[in-house]
């Protein structure tokens, strides 16, 4: 498997934890981000993710390099799924191993924050009465423009 990938199939998080596990590691943090049903009182039916795949994978790898420079001895694996995802499906998995737990916790949170900043992946929420690309705040529930 690739350490930094955009995938279309369901994610098995254990693969990513196993990938970063090595004798030097005293800690592995494994984050899975899931499709949430309710956001600000609006019920999501499902999500559709789209990515600029080659650039997204480069940016995931960049995040991994940033982490390995900032927290010595860490190793990172990240995957983000695209396509149609149902409630509770895993959208993203981040595994970080480090000699001690603090770095693994901190680096894992850093990774998800950076994903939301620089990785070209977009999420569309689909509701009963409409849909919206998140990040593009022009369309609101009910379809009216603001």
């Amino acid at each position: 498997m690739k350490a930094y990938s955009v995938v279309t199939e369901p994610i098995n998080p254990q693969l990513y934890a196993d990938y970063v596990l090595r004798p030097e590691a005293g800690a592995v943090t494994l984050f899975t981000g899931h499709v949430r049903e309710w956001t600000k009182g609006v019920k999501t039916l499902y999500l559709a993710y789209e990515a600029y795949v080659p650039m997204a994978e480069k940016k995931l790898a960049q995040i991994g390099r940033e982490i390995e420079e900032r927290w010595e001895g860490t190793q990172v694996a990240i995957a983000h799924r695209i396509g149609e995802l149902q409630i509770s499906d895993i959208a993203v998995v981040i595994a970080v191993s480090s000699p001690h737990r603090k770095a693994a916790y901190e680096a894992n949170e850093y990774a998800i924050e950076r994903i939301k900043e620089i990785v070209p992946i977009w999420k569309k929420e689909i509701w009963n009465d409409g849909e919206e690309w998140i990040g593009d705040q022009k369309k609101k529930p009910g379809g009216e423009m603001i």
Binding site: Y52, H80, K116, E117, V119, I121, W122, D136
Partner: peptide
């Protein structure tokens, strides 16, 4: 790679317009 406004485009470049991202 993210570009700057003054960057000059070359023959064969691949450009992408990136709206605000919302991964995760």
């Amino acid at each position: 790679e993210y570009a700057l406004p003054d960057d000059v485009l070359s023959e064969g470049d691949v450009v992408a317009l990136i709206p605000p991202v919302s991964g995760g």
